[in-house]
């Protein structure tokens, strides 16, 4: 395929473009000419303008509504809208991984998910990612004619295009396949006020050491402008809901700052946070494995350390 069109599957919530989508568009600009792909009701003018500002020459809309929850239907919609785009960038989530897989089965694309970056080398897309709980760096070349790259949030700094144009809006009609799967019920999860865990620039997590009291964790997260995370033991205890669980089987996070409070640092937990920028640990046990990977560690009780840290930060800010 000769075109350098790079399609970006835009993630949107309540009609607004999410921050990872702008990161993905920024990355796409370094790979070719980006177009934005929007599944659902057509975006409002300000969303289109924002996509244009970050470099999308065109916004293609496929109005598939709730069918987008079924990966086979979402993949068919994307296939119809990206025939001329050999490269597709999506934001790596459990759902987009399934859509990407379905799409690749349809169009023969090579897929890399959970990438931290991508570039074009000798006409091929190459991705960069960390594996084995972020202890190894891996570069992967996509050899197939089509490439799908799933990028992790917080891995590219979103910047507006240098000379953006106004994006045009195109409606694409897609014939969706019949599926055997049927969604019987959807119960939205209350996202609360803050940024979703996977996208947050700062994550403050509490584990068994909190003894079930998340007041300090929430306060610290608030002061640092971050989201609240948890270990599996904490969610298993029912201290906090499953959506907050960080780790290999929970949410993988790569914030600029990760603060682990009362978390031992089991390998399953580390697998979901070890690629974070700066890692801070507060733990009573000097031998806790979390200290093996922390940039700054405090051996002490979170009940003493967090209030003092909050107080110092507030004083510094003149609050």
């Amino acid at each position: 395929m000769s075109t350098d069109t790079v399609a970006v599957l835009i993630e949107h919530r309540d009609g607004a473009v999410t921050p990872p989508s702008l990161e993905a568009l920024t990355l796409a600009r370094s790979l070719g000419t980006p177009i934005a792909l929007w599944l659902g009701d057509a975006p409002a003018a300000d969303a289109v303008a924002q996509l244009g500002e970050y470099g999308a020459a065109e916004v293609r809309v496929v109005g598939i509504g709730d069918d987008a929850r079924l990966p086979a239907k979402a993949a068919a919609a994307i296939a119809a809208a990206t025939e001329d785009a050999p490269v597709l960038v999506v934001i790596s989530t459990f759902v987009t991984k399934e859509i990407a897989t379905r799409l690749a089965v349809l169009n023969g694309a090579g897929v890399v998910v959970d990438a931290a970056g991508a570039s074009r080398v000798d006409g091929h897309i190459e991705t960069f990612q960390t594996v084995f709980a972020a202890t190894w760096n891996v570069r992967t070349r996509i050899d197939a004619d089509r490439a799908i790259v799933g990028v992790r949030p917080n891995t590219t700094q979103a910047t507006p295009a240098e000379s953006p144009g106004a994006a045009t809006l195109t409606q694409v009609e897609a014939t969706l396949p019949q599926t055997r799967e049927r969604i019987v019920a959807v119960e939205p999860v209350d996202q609360g006020e803050g940024v979703p865990l996977a996208e947050a620039p700062v994550v403050v997590s509490g584990g068994r050491g909190t003894n079930g009291d998340y007041t300090l964790i929430e306060e610290f997260a608030g002061v640092l402008g971050g989201a609240v995370g948890a270990s599996r033991d904490a969610t298993d205890e029912g201290w906090i809901s499953h959506e907050h669980m960080v780790g290999q089987t929970g949410t993988t996070v790569t914030p600029a700052l990760y603060v682990a409070c009362g978390i031992s640092g089991a390998v399953h937990h580390r697998g979901g946070m070890q690629a974070s920028g700066t890692i801070v640990a507060i733990n009573m046990d000097p031998d806790a494995p979390i200290f093996e990977i922390s940039d700054f560690g405090v051996v002490g009780s979170l009940f003493d350390v967090i209030p003092q840290a909050i107080e110092t930060i507030k004083a510094h800010r003149g609050e």
């Binding site: 891996v138 050899d143 940039d295 967090i306």
Partner: peptide, 30 residues
């Protein structure tokens, strides 16, 4: 369809600092 072309062990984090809280741990963290 995809091939690993390079794999390398990540260097350990540098300039790591650990303190023991003797009443000033929170301030040092801040």
């Amino acid at each position: 369809r995809a091939t690993v072309v390079e794999a390398s062990e990540r260097p350990p984090r540098e300039n790591r600092r650990h303190v023991t809280d003797k009443g000033e741990g929170g301030r040092e963290l801040a």
